[in-house]
Design a protein around this nucleic acid. Structure first.
Lengths: 216, 216
DNA sequence: CGAGGGATTGATACGTCTCAAAGCATGTGG
DNA sequence: CCACATGCTTTGAGACGTATCAATCCCTCG
């Protein structure tokens, strides 16, 4: 993509963690096509993934066919830290992605190494923080607040232009809304000049403070 | 409370964990009155709590005064494992409660003890599982599903009669609903004979399978 | 140029919230 | 023992927000 102005995916890679280091040293590189599955919901947990390029989403499907997106994972993020022996969420690449894949067992071979234990704990804490924030958003905010907060989180600290890696459907399933409500809310925010969409996946936040006032 | 039939609070104490052991050995007993605060949202994290009797709820308040209940903690549950230096949720005793309180530092004094590190990780994983389940419930279920699932989770494996430790307002703030919607939904389930409420805090589930059919 | 998939917009139905009143327990003082 | 006050719960009527179903638009790609 070539743009005449600075563009930003809104996410800078996380500060390198020890666990990320171990995975990238112990693991093997892997490439996934758009929409390719890293692992399925209810699969056995065996691997740890470090995102190096692209974006990955985690999803959970219900029996009735409803879908909840658990989160979006950017370069530097780690997938595969689970609470049980099975994956509670499946994972798919949003677009072509490069990851580093390590067997859990080979990381566990380091067990007893206090540093590494600590790194796994820290990474798990990050997951917990992510889940708690998500829970608060779903429980406390209306559509306007959800969409606004989502834009802010996708914008991060960069600027002035940001790219959305995911479709409206992904956004909707992450926010617990329908695609129509997401679209309408975005249009409404655009009418109020709180956001500009040069195209469906590209946006600017000309009044970030006004967004933060109701979506923070 | 004396009842002529078996009654159950629906929660059996969790299988003793190593971390719970350490807290109960290292810590000091503490008693809290109903509605007394264990710690406040945004307080510095310093202590670990093991519930021994009674029930504790964690809550987060927004600037606009809305409240989200993060969870309910029963005997055997541990509070105070946080993702950052500050408490993201406050904690209050629902009714008179006995806890065991240990300084984080004195638990950390065991650091390097691989077993203990592992125990902290496991406890953090439990929190993660709790938060993820909560997130899924908020994102995927309607009022009927939320209330039904809540009753099932409060009932646990015991039976046939269960006690609710929390008010309708606590339930509502946990489920992301209003107190009126919770009350109406409970009345509706009662009309369908999916639940019986001899009193507001006591209930029976005569057709648990029928509940599970839509609330699982 | 036409086909296809994602996104937007419109009309309407439905679910949940809001505001208000009534019901029901529990405890207190007369 | 009754009368009342208090707090929690339930019920009702109407407003509001989001979902649903359907049509149109837009962009990309062949």
């Amino acid at each position: 993509m070539s743009l005449a102005f600075a563009m930003d995916d809104g996410r800078t890679a996380r500060p390198a963690s020890l666990l990320a280091d171990v995975i990238s040293r112990q693991g093997a590189p892997a490439r996934f096509a758009a929409n390719e599955e890293l692992y399925a919901q209810d699969d056995q947990v065996e691997l740890l993934f470090l995102v190096q390029r692209g974006v990955v989403r985690t999803t959970r499907l219900t029996l009735e066919g409803r879908r909840q997106v658990g989160g979006f994972y950017y370069p530097g993020d780690i997938l595969g830290l689970e609470t049980g022996p099975l994956h509670r969420f499946g994972a798919e690449a949003l677009s072509e992605a490069e990851l580093c894949v390590a067997r859990r067992a080979s990381v566990r071979a380091f067990a007893g190494d206090t540093e590494l234990d600590r790194a796994v704990l820290d990474a798990t804490r990050l997951e917990l923080e992510r889940a708690q924030s998500h829970m608060l958003m779903l429980g406390l905010k209306n559509a306007r607040g959800k969409v606004g907060a989502f834009l802010l989180s996708m914008a991060g600290a960069g600027g002035p232009m940001f790219e959305l890696a995911m479709s409206r459907q992904d956004m909707a399933d992450y926010l617990g809304l329908t695609i129509e409500t997401v679209s309408r809310t975005l249009s409404q925010l655009q009418n109020e000049a709180l956001v500009e969409f040069p195209s469906a996946r590209l946006f600017r936040l000309p009044r970030r403070d006004a967004l933060e006032a109701f979506a923070a």
